[in-house]
Design a binder for these strands. Structure first.
Length: 237
DNA sequence: CCAGACGTTGTT
DNA sequence: GTCTGG
DNA sequence: CCAGACGTTGTT
DNA sequence: GTCTGG
């Protein structure tokens, strides 16, 4: 699945890499090494406003709160959406044809489980390019009449070089597919659903330290390669 | 009709 | 909001 | 995803 | 064990 990701690029690099035409996110973007659920993150949406259709950056909170939710705490359960069932599940089906977005990342983490041990690994493009992930978003009206905009990340079966870590992975959108996913006004959901599949582009994977486990850490050391764990439990002799 | 659910993952 | 189950 | 909390009352 | 919060 996908429970943490990075966006280490700065604003200028994001704009160039993803050919962004409009930046409408609140606040400054600082490079992020440990984005966690419930935190604000950058997403791409399609804008049909003048001067023409284009990719726009916005900020939303990770963890979907459907419009009908009574308690926004549901967000922590809806950080991912199974691609195989987004067209049927009540929380997602109305969004597939109307509210698709691409979560801007340039890497993500998976924890490899070995019995009790859990070792985090980082997966990214060896060239450092962005890995936009298929997302769905919604708006929730709070009791005080303020609005909360949230998103979830669509997942699919892991491709063969990832399965040693986990059997699921986020849906990463190829550059050629990006606008098809984003343009909800002109692309029917059937065509968008065809993009829910494992990414075919280059990915590099390596173990990292457990610093990433705590959301308090959010710096470059998070994605430094760590030596494989050796003799953690009484095997020194 | 109303009430209640609405999700994913991993682990056993 | 919308669907399923009773 | 992992970390951390997990409770009420009355008094200050 | 299970839920909430980040």
């Amino acid at each position: 699945m996908c429970g943490r990701f990075t966006l280490t690029q700065d604003r200028k690099s994001i704009v160039e890499d993803l050919e962004v035409a409009e930046w409408s996110a609140a606040g400054e973007h600082r490079p992020r090494f440990n984005v966690a659920p419930t935190q604000s993150a950058l997403v791409l949406t399609w804008s049909d406003e003048a001067p023409g259709s284009h990719r726009a950056v916005r900020d939303m909170r990770w963890g979907l709160v459907p419009g009908w939710a009574k308690d926004p705490a549901i967000a922590s359960k809806l950080i991912n959406a199974r691609g195989e069932s987004i067209a049927e599940k009540p929380s997602f089906r109305n969004l597939v044809g109307r509210r698709r977005c691409a979560v801007i990342t340039d890497g993500f983490f998976e924890w490899k489980k070995d019995g009790k041990a859990s070792v985090p690994h980082y997966i990214h493009d060896p060239a450092g390019k962005a890995l936009p992930m298929a997302g769905l978003w919604d708006v929730w009206k709070a009791p005080d009449d303020t609005y909360l905009t949230t998103f979830t990340i669509v997942t699919t079966e892991a491709r063969s070089d990832i399965t040693f870590l986990h059997d699921r992975m986020p849906v990463i959108l190829a550059r050629d597919d990006l606008d098809t996913w984003l343009d909800v006004a002109h692309v029917p959901k059937e065509k968008a659903l065809a993009l829910v599949k494992a990414y075919a582009g280059p990915l590099e994977t390596f173990p990292v330290s457990k610093l990433v486990n705590s959301v308090r850490y959010d710096s470059a050391e998070i994605i430094r390669r760590a030596d494989p764990e050796v003799g953690t439990q009484g095997s020194l002799f």
